[in-house]
Amino acid sequence: MELSTLNVMEWVGFDNYTALWEDERFWNALLNTITIGILSTVPQLLMALGLAHLLNYRLRGSTFFRVAALTPYATSVGAAALVFTMLFERDFGMINWMLGLVGIDNIDFENNKWAAQIAISTIVIWRWTGYNALLYLAAMQAIPRDRYEAAAIDGASRWQQFLKVTIPGIRATIVFTIVLSTIGATQLFGEPLIFGQGPNGITGGADNQYQTLGLLLYEEGWKNYQMGRAATVAWAMFLLLIVVFVVQRVVKRVLARRA
């Protein structure tokens, strides 16, 4: 549909889709969404796994550690992105200051493509690691104790127990968190928008170096007033999600067959 103004609709067939296919900005946004998605999801879930393992020990002050881990989840994306924007500031940001202490020159986290994507991923990781850790922790606590005892009798070390008892025991939850964070990653919007500071926010940096599909959707729909184009981006996001899950299924099946 051609929808530059809301009340004028015109049937344009698949024109918007072919335009999208030929649009460099779309491929750029798609790639950015994928790279930021990987940069944020993989470390996030691995760290959550480690954190959950630690929280699963018998602890003094376990409530404190759990609530502390979950606090970033209570921080709105706006506030979190503002704080990290400042921490990642080029001239006076704390991260560059600390890098300076170990002799690394100031990094331009805003304009350097990979630095910007890492910074944005850091915001995502910060906000969601604790949440995922609690999901893992809940699943870990449901693993029957005798499985560990049996493994210990078989001479399994702590590490082997973690690999052979804990991980299989929480597999369903791992799949669940992968699904959740993949959905979250395809929709990423607030973090890059606010990290981009104002006018550059929607375009994802001066060279679109961190424009995600979410930002592109917004730019098409509410800056360029091309609702039809925005809708095609939305469909592309949905398609991306489906492709990711199909790939995941296939990989799982191949791995299972090999095992």
Binding site: G50, Y57, L59
Partner: peptide
């Protein structure tokens, strides 16, 4: 929660790591 999970006491390393996480 059901299940006893792991009942190991946390050692100093675990506390340090948790402290860093917090």
């Amino acid at each position: 929660h059901p299940g006893a999970g792991r009942q190991h006491h946390a050692g100093p390393v675990a506390y340090i790591l948790l402290g860093i996480a917090a």
